[in-house]
């Protein structure tokens, strides 16, 4: 049961982060498809790195959350910005690292691959929808407040001794 909850919680948190990046960058910087491609591409690179690093999962979670909040707080200051160099890309990579690290930690702990990926993906769907609804109904501040709450939840659920 705890493995299921952990996977769901990680999925919700990661769904909030990725969708949050997409929504805020498409609003503040550009809705051009390059923004979407950059977010998805950087996230995938982060996930790949996360599969191979041996850092503590909690550390990757905290670093990913902090870089995310830093980007959101910067973008919150502007309605629409002139296009600049993509300074947010390293932050997205950092946030994506936990996505890969979560899986290696879970599988090393003996959890089954199928259910772990399934529950994380279900959670991701919920997180993405929560980010959309929160941003549309409660504004841009919801995009950094919600992931802080889920980040704390995931940190509390993460094993103290990683595998």
């Amino acid at each position: 049961m705890s493995a299921t909850i952990r996977a769901w919680a990680a999925g919700i948190h990661l769904g909030l982060l990725q969708t949050g990046y997409l929504l805020s960058l498409q609003r503040a910087i550009s809705a051009a498809h390059q923004t979407y491609a950059t977010v998805v591409g950087a996230w995938l690179v982060g996930s790949l790195i996360g599969l191979f690093v041996r850092l503590r999962p909690r550390l990757t979670l905290v670093v990913g959350l902090l870089t995310y909040v830093a980007v959101q707080l910067t973008l919150t200051q502007v309605d629409f910005a002139a296009y600049t160099w993509p300074w947010w890309v390293p932050a997205i990579v950092c946030s994506g690292v936990y996505s890969g690290r979560f899986f290696t930690d879970a599988i090393a702990a003996g959890e089954d691959v199928g259910p772990t990926f399934a529950h994380e993906t279900y959670g991701f769907v919920v997180g993405a929808l929560v980010a959309l609804v929160a941003a549309v109904f409660f504004g841009r501040s919801a995009l950094w407040l919600c992931p802080i709450a889920t980040g704390i939840m995931v940190a509390l659920l993460t094993r103290k001794r990683p595998h």
């Binding site: 089954d112 691959v113 199928g114 259910p115 990926f117 399934a118 529950h119 993906t121 279900y122 769907v125």
Partner: peptide, 8 residues
């Protein structure tokens, strides 16, 4: 997600 679940 259903695919991941079924695969195992």
């Amino acid at each position: 997600a259903v695919g991941y679940q079924l695969g195992g």
